[in-house]
């Protein structure tokens, strides 16, 4: 009731809901907070396509406009035999898009000799200073307090109250 949760322009997001319930479960236990933090970092690389991926894969070709359609057909008839629907479906399943992390795992870069530069070795590595600044999740100011229930940071009594009233254990990301 305070603040914004009843805002008329709040939009519905399937992705938000799904992630949020996972988050809430994770945040409730301090053991899982580290995992929740990782999930949150992971979410920073998301697109808002998530949920629909499966259902839409089959109509890939439908997305092309006429120009391209002609182009693609020319190309296909030239370079490969026309495939049956079934064969194509099979191939699609085999070639279903995988995440970069999956491809990276398959590449098994850990097995490369130490002098070979690789994606893994190029990571900048941890900061030399371990100090982490904390910002209030409610207002963004420097935050010195931690919620004992969910571990999220806040800066003042005022923000703590807002947090307790409307946001505790409700992670939006």
């Amino acid at each position: 009731m305070e603040e914004d949760t009843s805002s008329p322009i709040r939009r519905v997001s399937s992705r938000t809901r799904k992630v949020a319930s996972k988050m809430a479960a994770a945040l409730a236990s301090s053991d899982n907070r580290a995992q929740a933090a990782l999930a949150r970092l992971e979410a920073l690389e998301n697109d808002n396509a998530g949920m629909e991926m499966q259902e839409t894969n089959e109509d890939d070709e439908a997305s092309l406009d006429d120009d391209d359609q002609v182009y693609m057909q020319k190309k296909m008839s030239k370079s490969m035999k026309r495939k049956t629907r079934q064969a194509k479906a099979l191939e699609n399943a085999r070639k279903a898009p995988r995440t970069f992390i999956e491809l990276l795992h398959e590449a098994n870069l850990e097995s490369l000799p130490p002098h070979v530069p690789s994606y893994l070795k190029a990571a900048v590595g941890p900061p030399s200073s371990t100090s982490r600044r904390h910002f209030c999740t409610v207002c963004g100011s420097a935050a010195n307090y931690t919620c004992i229930r969910c571990g999220i940071r806040f800066c003042s009594c005022r923000c703590q109250n807002i947090h307790n009233d409307t946001r505790c254990l409700k992670f939006v990301a």
């Binding site: 709040r10 939009r11 992705r15 979410a43 690389e45 409610v138 990301a173």
Partner: peptide, 25 residues
């Protein structure tokens, strides 16, 4: 970290503090 993560972070902050923009890339 690049521009995509920054946009998503901004979405998070605005959604958390004022209005849900999680789907508004």
């Amino acid at each position: 970290l690049g521009g995509k993560a920054l946009t998503n972070f901004l979405k998070e902050l605005v959604s958390y503090r004022s209005v849900n923009v999680m789907d508004e890339t």
